[in-house]
């Protein structure tokens, strides 16, 4: 007996469903914190160009490595640029690129995984071995190769990140499909003679969607870290565009005497990753697919 049975609610609109999920997420402390951080970062990314107090690329040698003050809240860096301005602007590129990268990862990883899970047999074997082979390649090396061959433009980075982070989603989507595929409603659809496309669209996707979305949310935070690593190595965003990875890389040599120039981007990056992680966890719990807490009855 499930507790849900008790209230025979009528069919809800999609908007009502989404808002209910968000309310459930925010009702836990961890979910509330995660959501707040994430929303804060997203809003910041939108409005930062308008609220930034200084020009992010204005170099002023006379202001080199100033400690935080009323005028320069987070101090200045080795070229005399305002760290506060650069920090609030530094998340924009990373957030945009990884958001679209995750969407691509979700799309191709999810669909391929579902397809393999449904079809099974030799096709599944072959595709999964190829995915395994790609999984065994250290992603950073492969990314460096791609970036150095094709350049660091957004059009390259988004699909490249999307591809590399989608491999893991293939496995998750395939496993989730396997859970569903043995159920009689799939057998029933097959016996009726529905096409593979119809079975995937009508029967499987509604049942694996949640698992894949949660996985995608987790991938997002990993991708963010990955992207910042690329920037740190000098293969992500090109200067003078402000970016956390790049800022950390530039300022790390000065850490011993100008800690402020490195702490601000570190806080920015890690808080965003924590925010996404907490949100993804809360999302999973709100959808009821978290395995650590079971339904009471």
């Amino acid at each position: 007996m499930k507790l849900d049975n008790i209230y025979q609610e009528e069919k809800k609109s999609n908007f009502a469903k989404v808002s209910e999920i968000i309310i459930t997420m925010a009702s836990r402390p961890s979910g509330f914190i995660g959501l707040s951080i994430l929303i804060f970062h997203v809003i910041l990314a939108f409005i930062s160009p308008y609220i930034a107090p200084y020009d992010f690329k204005a170099i002023n040698p006379t202001l080199m490595l100033q400690a935080p003050s009323a005028e320069y809240w987070f101090g200045t860096d080795d070229l005399g640029r305002d760290v506060f301005t650069r920090t609030i602007l530094g998340g924009r590129t990373a957030l945009t690129i990884t958001f679209f990268g995750s969407l691509i990862a979700l799309l191709w990883g999810g669909l391929l995984g579902i397809f393999c899970g449904l079809v099974g047999g030799k096709t599944d074997d072959i595709v999964m071995r190829i995915v395994d082979a790609f999984l065994s390649i250290p992603w950073i090396l492969a990314m460096l190769l791609i970036v150095s061959l094709l350049g660091t433009s957004t059009e390259v980075l988004i699909p490249a990140l999307g591809f590399f982070y989608g491999k893991g989603i293939v496995r998750v989507a395939r496993a989730a499909t396997h859970d569903v595929i043995a159920k009689d409603f799939i057998v029933s659809a097959r016996a009726r003679g529905h096409s593979n496309f119809s079975i995937i669209w009508n029967e499987i996707i509604p049942n694996v969607r949640d698992a894949i979305l949660v996985e995608g949310a987790m991938r997002w935070s990993w991708m963010l870290l990955g992207f910042s690593s690329l920037s740190f190595l000098g293969f992500g965003v090109s200067p003078p565009t402000p970016d956390w990875g790049l800022m950390i890389s530039n300022a790390r040599g000065l850490m011993s005497f100008a800690y402020w120039s490195v702490i601000a981007p570190i806080v920015g990056l890690s808080s965003l990753i924590i925010g996404i992680n907490l949100t993804a966890d809360a999302f999973a719990k709100a959808l009821g697919i978290d395995r650590s807490t079971k339904a009471p009855v």
Binding site: K183, D184, F185, V187, S188, A191, R192, N207
Partner: peptide, 12 residues
Amino acid sequence: QLIFQNPDESLN
């Protein structure tokens, strides 16, 4: 047409 044992599993 088929009717299955367990309606929990046979209905999406």
